[in-house]
Design a protein around this nucleic acid. Structure first.
Lengths: 127, 127, 127, 127
DNA sequence: GTGGTCTAGACCACG
DNA sequence: GTGGTCTAGACCACC
């Protein structure tokens, strides 16, 4: 399968299942995980990541609900990256969401659009 | 005192104390609450907002810890907006934080800086 | 609260969480549970129904996801029946779904529409 | 033999054996498979459909149990469509089952019989 | 008190 | 082997 490096932070305030879920989703969106690829079995994955089976199950359940994977009893859990629209829409949606938060905050504080463009250039270089 | 309209949403997933705290902080950053202004007493405030006294106490405690207000026994809780650096730094920090999140996400998805500038203009108009 | 009689069948092939979920949803759709009503706490409910806490949690989680209830830490789980469109759409959708299954089956077996109308009248009287 | 086009969906949530079984049963009920016809051998069938021999064995076993086929060691598996009553009863039973589900649901939601007749006409046209 | 998250097991149907 | 469901506990933040 494609590379799948999951990093779990115990100090993060985010739930484990959400951290794992986001990283898998991100790997699909970035194209690192391709259509039809088999994800690790629930048991193996939970052993590798040292988390409960239920945590991984929740990850797979929610990813399936959102249309990114398909789980089949007796077979495993597969990546569904065939739906290009879903992939692209999700990308744009995620970015827009963050940008709206930032712009809303900026406006309430009286920050001008020019300053934001400048900040954007600087930050895009740095990160 | 300056304008201080607190809106509490029971359907929000954010804790009550955080909603209240953010709105007070925002009012200070926007300059609606000026240096030295007296905030409502814990008792009055909790009555007005129909929340527990403990909730307001937590709000004031955390705001004091962050340096935005000062509580003095027997006198009340005052706004500390005199420290211009704190105010400006806090503004920039909050915005930068959001922008870094967004840019990081965009880069992992291969979105170009031009597209972000375009999105920024559009969203700045809309929100 | 409104009446909330949950009947669990251990012999049903349906998962427990689905049986419970459907009965709550049905009670909301029938108007037996009104907007704003407080559902039993997860702990009490699981004790009453003699099922695991996790099972009830899953019920509430999915009902929240579908927009029928709202859970708030420290407060409880409330009925959201205010959205009339959601309620009516859900009703029609559920019935349509079943009817499409039936009609599809009937057509593949060469059953005429007249026969279906007759069966419908008979069954509507009986059940 | 009569026409026997089996379509297997890997994304369906239904077990493979059930998908295959239903399609054979449906072909018998529709008259596409006639009395006495020889079904493919377990070995050939499993090769054609690219499924396990165990899966086909289960299909034939259950169909035999329900009286739709007869397996004879050394000869093969034959369609039993001679029993007209079984065929017709099965048809009506399957449809009735679905219709009862739908009507029960409709009644609990206060839907009138007229509306059901109207929906029936519309759906019969569309599907 | 409440829900939100997590663990460490288990049994089942399916392939 | 796989995922689907379920149990019986636990700790946390919030109110």
């Amino acid at each position: 399968m494609g590379r799948l490096n999951i990093v779990i932070s115990n100090t993060s305030e985010k739930p484990l299942y959400e951290q794992i879920k986001e990283q898998i989703k991100s790997a699909i969106l970035k194209g690192e995980l391709k259509n039809g690829e088999l994800l690790p079995s629930i048991r193996n994955f939970s052993t590798d990541l040292k988390v409960s089976i239920l945590t991984i199950r929740r990850v797979y359940d929610e990813l399936e609900e959102e249309g990114f994977v398909s789980s089949q009893a007796g077979k495993g859990t597969f990546v569904l990256a065939g739906n290009k629209d879903l992939i692209e829409d999700t990308k744009r949606m995620l970015i827009e969401e963050k940008m709206i938060e930032m712009v809303t905050l900026s406006k309430t504080m009286g920050v001008k659009i020019q300053n934001l463009h400048e900040m954007l250039d600087i930050i895009y270089e740095e990160v």
